[in-house]
Amino acid sequence: MSLLEIRGVMVRFGGVMAIGGVDLDVQAGEVTGLIGPNGAGKTTLFNVISGMQEPTAGSVHVSGVDVTNEAPHRRAKRGLARTFQRLELFSSLTVRDNVRVAAELAALTNIDETVDNLLQKVGVSDLAEQTAGDLPTGSARLVEIARALATGPHLLLLDEPASGLDEAESERLGVLLRQLTADGLGVLLVEHDMSLVMHVCDQIFVLDLGLIIANGTPTEIQHDPKVLQAYLGAPS
């Protein structure tokens, strides 16, 4: 049984087919990449998984439980956490309180300790007392990851976590992701930074125009002609 099982998910906005029947699996202890050109439907798929967007058809299972009709906060209780492509920090709270809210929602016992550990883990301890709205994008992305981790998730959805990060930060993020999966966490990663994706992912799914056009290991994906075509356009 996979940690996350998506079967036949379809999303239609009026006449536009945003996602046209997607099957996707994420295993515990692995980083699964989800790549594709802009507008392929990656964020929409994230919204379906996290419960912010009702699918027109299809189902979402987390750890074998059907969560298709559950509210976002119920899914969070089942161990699902996500970050956002456009930052969604609680901008008037401090960095520490951002992470703390999440830890409190997960009803953890030693909240202070958890928060400190997480801030350290993603490398933003020195920013703890800053107001989140004042952070530069790179640090803010890291805080969002810490905040998502504070809910103690089994499955983490990351929506372009490396955009806005410099090369060194991006590399550190890769290391962090490997650490997290070593502890048994499953990660679904949407990312445009191909060196990061190819470096950390165990499995990659390629989404184009709402359909999965390829999946496999990084090496397989790199040599898949359909993928090259989707990214570079049809050979004339």
Binding site: A76, L80, S92, D97, A148
Partner: peptide, 24 residues
């Protein structure tokens, strides 16, 4: 308090608050 942080979270980003497990 804990409640206050949740209220602010609700204002600043309902989407994030809900996906972190808060019942809006």
């Amino acid at each position: 308090s804990r409640l206050g942080r949740r209220l602010i979270a609700l204002k600043d980003s309902p989407a994030a608050a809900a996906t972190l497990g808060m019942s809006l």
